[in-house]
Each structure stands twice: as structure tokens, then as C-alpha cells.
């Protein structure tokens, strides 16, 4: 499968009764600062959520709570049947690792491992976490790299690749772990608009294949056309969510309106 699939994801609307990810009353404090304020979110299998809002609204922190790079101060999280309730310091490492296996993350600053080739970047965690043999891991790495159109760069180092290519390698690396949920933390914010389009095309194809995705982004047109649901976050809380057309053309909350007019110039 390559990036040329044209199926619009909204045509294959997910079955919302199939609740795949469920976050309840998530709170994350950094000292005095409450970055995530009582956020509850439910995601169906195959659903694509666009997470929008001003900078500093807590979108990144929320995503990092979903794959436990940050430990929520309270609340509960359930992904693909695996559930954790956050109370104080009770989190056990095996629990964390089990939940994390269901997620994959793509970062704004790519975070590729500079001392490894593209293929090794994609293969390493497969070998160390999933226990795949070197041959199998490398084969799958090549498949994933091909999927994002970078089979030719398998033996290149990140420093030899452009920004857009690096991000695609990052996507391949996350996909190679066969995650149930893909998290994108402003994947195109560090790239030129032209280059960003490459990434958006890959993400659109993934959505078309039925991948469950949560995407924090500033790309409004992308959010409108590719997501099933738009969630608006301001100052750590969700103030509005709903179908893209509804939220973006006729928002109910005044703050959303304010944000959208600043961003879209309306």
C-alpha cells in the first residue's frame, strides 16, 4: 500500500459504539500549573480526531498522557481493553509498558535516532520490544519505509534526509510497531508548507485505511477534510467537539469562534 489511496476517510465513518480509547477525567499538573484539566475523551476504532486549539492549550500534554510519556495526576485511561486508573504514585512499570504498546507517536521535532540508519530506526524497537528477529524486523522496516515512499532511503542516516523525509521515517518507525492508536503531535509544525503536504498525504492515506488517529495540528483544512471529529482545547480543557463542518463553520462556544477567526482570518 502506498500513499496514493484516494478514499476519503469520512466516507467510511467509524462505528462509534465500538469504543476503543476511553480517557476519563484526566488531570495533569506540573507543580501549580494545571496543563490538562478534567479531560474526558472517547475514541472509536478507526476514528480520526483532530485536536485543535491555541499554543499552550495542553494538546501536547494530553497526547503525552495517552501514551504515558507523562503520568496523569488523576483520572483513568483505557486503550484496546487495557485499563489504568491513576491514583498518586501507584503506577507499575509493566502496566505502563503494556498500555504503551497499543500506541505509536509521531513528534513535532521528529526525534529520529541520529546514529542509526533509517531502516535501523524503524527496526530497533521491533527487535527489542516485540522480539522480532533481525531479518523480520528489517523486512518489515523496508515495507513500512516503502509505504511512506522512502524505500530508497533505507540505508541513509537522518542527517542525510530532508525534514519531510525524516518525519516520514518517524511515521514508519511508529507504524512498524503495529499500534492500535496513532498519536501525532503537530507533525507538520516544524516543516515548510510544501513539505508539510507530503506528510499530510501520508496521514490521509493512513486514515483512509482505517487507522485510529488523534492528531494535534494547526492545519485547519486538513482537520476539516480528514478528521471525523474535531476537538477544541483551550487552557487544558475541551471546550467543544463535534463534526468538522459543525465545529469549524458554526462553533457554539465563543472561545472557539475567537480562536478560529484568529487562525482562519474570518
Amino acid at each position: 500500500m502506498s500513499i496514493h489511496t484516494e478514499t476519503s476517510p469520512t466516507e467510511t465513518a467509524p462505528d462509534v459504539s465500538n469504543e476503543f480509547v476511553r480517557a476519563e477525567h484526566l488531570v495533569k499538573d506540573f507543580g501549580q500549573h494545571r496543563a490538562v484539566n478534567d479531560v474526558s475523551l472517547s475514541v472509536a476504532k478507526g476514528e480520526v480526531i483532530a485536536l485543535i486549539g491555541p499554543s499552550g492549550a495542553g494538546k501536547s500534554t494530553l497526547l503525552r498522557c495517552l501514551n504515558l510519556l507523562e503520568t496523569p495526576s488523576s483520572g483513568s485511561l483505557q486503550i484496546a481493553g487495557e485499563r489504568i486508573v491513576f491514583e498518586g504514585d501507584n503506577l507499575k512499570r509493566p502496566q505502563v509498558l503494556r498500555l504503551r504498546r497499543h500506541t505509536g507517536m509521531v513528534f513535532q521535532s521528529f526525534n529520529l535516532f541520529p546514529h542509526l540508519t533509517a531502516a535501523k530506526n524503524v527496526a530497533l524497537a521491533q527487535m527489542r520490544v516485540l522480539g522480532r528477529s533481525k531479518k523480520e524486523a528489517m523486512d518489515r522496516a523496508l515495507t513500512q519505509l516503502d509505504r511512506v515512499g522512502l524505500a530508497s532511503k533505507a540505508d541513509a542516516y537522518p542527517s542525510q534526509c530532508s525534514g519531510g523525509q525524516q518525519q516520514r521515517i518517524g511515521i514508519a518507525r511508529a507504524l512498524a510497531m503495529d499500534p492500535d492508536l496513532m498519536l501525532f503531535d503537530e507533525p507538520t509544525s516544524g516543516l515548510d508548507p510544501e513539505v508539510g503536504a507530503e506528510i499530510l498525504a501520508v496521514m490521509r492515506a493512513l486514515a483512509g485505511e482505517g487507522t485510529t488517529m488523534i492528531i494535534a495540528t494547526h492545519e485547519m483544512e486538513f482537520a476539516r477534510h480528514v478528521s471525523h471529529r474535531v476537538v477544541v482545547m483551550v487552557e487544558g480543557a475541551i471546550i467543544e467537539e463535534g463534526a468538522p463542518e459543525q465545529v469549524m463553520s458554526a462553533p457554539t462556544h465563543e472561545r472557539t469562534q475567537k480562536f478560529l477567526s484568529a487562525v482562519l482570518g474570518r
Binding site: L69, T103, M105, F107, L112, A125, A174
Partner: peptide
């Protein structure tokens, strides 16, 4: 920090993160 972030995001253990990602760099 992004290096260990990416490594943990891939579910790698603390030991593996140090061994394959942090310490070589």
C-alpha cells in the same frame, strides 16, 4: 530529551533506551 521520548514512545525499556539510544550518543 526527544531521543528518550521517542524511545519510550516505542515502548522500549529504560535499560534499552540507555543502551541503544542515550549512551551511544
Amino acid at each position: 530529551r526527544g531521543q528518550s521520548d521517542a524511545s519510550y514512545a516505542l515502548s522500549m525499556s529504560r535499560f534499552d533506551t540507555y543502551r541503544y539510544i542515550v549512551l551511544p550518543q
